[in-house]
Design a protein around this nucleic acid. Structure first.
Lengths: 182, 182
DNA sequence: GCCTCGAACTTTAGCTTCTAAGTGTTCAGG
DNA sequence: CCTGAACACTTAGAAGCTAAAGTTCGAGGC
């Protein structure tokens, strides 16, 4: 029947052929780009997931570490800010922070100037975990792009940025949900 | 503090600047590409999620519909095949099929030639749902790529395919999990 | 022809993670 | 001093998953 590759998953070419077979007026060029984007991203997420597992943290942990590190020194944020940034409810954030405090990745303290607020702060151990994850990620990313020469990288970066600008302008509300990992 | 854009989310440029500030020996070119890929994909998933919601189906439903349609006429698969294809356990598949049968998207019958097996088959309604979703998706995809001229599209498709080939060769096991939506 | 083994799906139990709603605490203003 | 708003936490419940046991059926030995 064609793609008897064991149901594991068809190749990109097989999949596009199937789309064309089942749906009229499909631009194969567009479909190739969109499907390649989706598949690339899935593979990236698999790779990142393996790395974080190897470091003994969850992907959820990693997202929080990332938000804190990128906020800059002194690496502090309130739970609601984190929740907004990651696109989940404050209640869910409370649980995540519980876990991460137990793992020693962050501390949770009351803000002494406004005792309603709570400050989540990265620990040195948490910062080191993030750095390790980044070291692994950059190795993977370098491997991924190793076939591209500098010109191709520049062009690819420019084109993707243009696409992103268009979609972010058209869709100002991020929405959260649906995996982040950027 | 720089990105006082309300915590909603930093721009790509701000985010890369933050990465460079916090991590040494980072190639901004690589990081730009990788982060743009991740953000693009998130936006695509948000868009697809809205479309499926508008059609009254879940993303999980859509994945199953897609697998069935792409398998070709007569749009039949066994639960274990579907489970393998979508990367989840047979038990989880049973529940998904329950839902979808109740929604009239698929039927579930015993295979009369081998009564151990079960055949999940797309209903006309299910097929029509998929077609509607595809119509919406192609509109979105056309909008997304509208700024690219034909040469750029061809180049982008080729480059992404090259990246995909590399990562799929290096990582033969898909692993499943972590959102598909391709 | 019977019996046992294995395959395919379902069922059950339990876990994880989320949301929604309600509670307690703190600060600001009248 | 009292009220209202803001913030985080707690509790209850829903959704979705996995693992493991259970059921049904077909295949092959004897």
């Amino acid at each position: 029947m064609g793609d008897t590759s064991g149901l594991g998953e068809p190749t990109l070419e097989e999949q596009i052929a199937a789309y064309q077979r089942e749906f009229q007026d499909l631009d194969p060029q567009v479909e190739k780009i969109v499907n390649a984007l989706a598949r690339l991203n899935r593979r990236m997420n698999v790779a990142y997931g393996r790395q974080t597992a190897e470091l003994g943290i969850t992907s959820a942990d990693w997202e929080v570490l990332k938000a804190l590190v990128l906020s800059g020194a002194p690496y502090r944020m309130g739970p609601s800010d984190l929740a907004k940034r990651l696109g989940l409810t404050p209640a869910a954030m409370t649980h995540r922070i519980d876990r991460m405090v137990a793992e020693g990745l962050v501390t949770r303290d009351r803000d002494e100037t406004n005792r309603v607020r709570v400050i989540v702060e990265l620990t040195p151990a948490g910062r080191e975990k993030w750095q390790e994850a980044m070291r692994m990620a950059t190795v993977f990313e370098g491997d991924l792009l190793q076939d591209l020469d500098p010109d191709e990288r520049a062009t690819l970066g420019e084109v993707l940025t243009r696409l992103l600008r268009r979609v972010e302008d058209a869709q100002p509300d991020a929405g959260g949900r649906l995996t982040d990992l950027d």
